[in-house]
């Protein structure tokens, strides 16, 4: 096992772990969004409740396995990201007086730890509002009602939308960077991956952001 630890703990190995966990989390976003869009069904939350109960059921073994994997990979992604950033920052003690970073790199690529940090704060709030209460206890109101109440608060919705913008920033660099880290790079395919990554970031985050706005505008029953 020594060789494996050495591999995933090398500068390149850490980035490979970052790419694989990041792509897994991106796929999770698709599944999560698909479920959440049921909130917009306009049926007072009937379909959404069915889905939420199915997902929260203890007997649903496949979902429970994926749930545990998701948490482990998410935590690994966060800790690994913090470690990489801290090592990289320590590689230059004396900073430049003048840096013209926009001349050679995108803002998104330089903003990953900051966008990641805000997404983390969002996740803590998000999980406390919806996941933990409904997964581990039985609140009196339905999940649909909880979502509706939360999103009718402009502060809560505002922060949600803000976090989605930051998530889009994070994905815009992250998705294409992950493919590059895993070795998929050439003149033909890379421009396509970059455009697809940007489109993915915009579509996913826009779709997520529509949900709080829908309730904020009083369109939820």
């Amino acid at each position: 096992m020594g060789w494996f630890i050495k591999f995933i703990d090398s500068s390149i190995g850490k980035k490979i772990v970052m790419a694989l966990t990041g792509l897994f989390l991106s796929i999770f976003l698709i599944a999560h969004l698909a479920g959440n869009l049921l909130l917009l069904a306009g049926d007072g939350g009937v379909k959404f409740e069915e889905y939420a109960n199915f997902m929260a059921e203890s007997g649903n073994i496949p979902v429970r396995i994926v749930e545990i994997a998701l948490f482990i990979l998410l935590i690994y992604h966060i800790i690994n990201g913090i470690r990489i950033t801290s090592i990289n920052r320590k590689a230059r003690n004396i900073k430049y007086k003048k840096v013209d970073a926009s001349a050679n790199s995108t803002f998104f690529s330089r903003f990953m730890i900051q966008s990641g940090g805000i997404i983390f704060i969002f996740l803590v709030i998000h999980l406390r509002s919806f996941f933990f209460p409904y997964r581990f206890s039985h609140p009196e109101i339905t999940m649909y009602e909880a979502v509706k109440t939360a999103f009718e608060n402009p502060l809560y919705s505002g922060f949600y939308v803000f976090a989605m913008v930051l998530l889009a920033f994070h994905l815009n660099h992250g998705v294409q960077s992950a493919f590059q880290t895993l070795g998929l790079y050439d003149k033909k395919i890379t421009p396509i991956i970059k455009k697809t990554g940007t489109a993915f970031a915009i579509i996913i985050c826009l779709a997520f952001a529509i949900i709080p706005l829908y309730f904020l505008m009083g369109m939820g029953e």
């Binding site: 990489i84 990289n88 970073a101 001349a103 050679n104 790199s105």
Partner: peptide, 14 residues
Amino acid sequence: GFGSCTNTEACAAE
């Protein structure tokens, strides 16, 4: 003590 690559691509640009 060099850092790791985060694909900002600044190196290739410069």
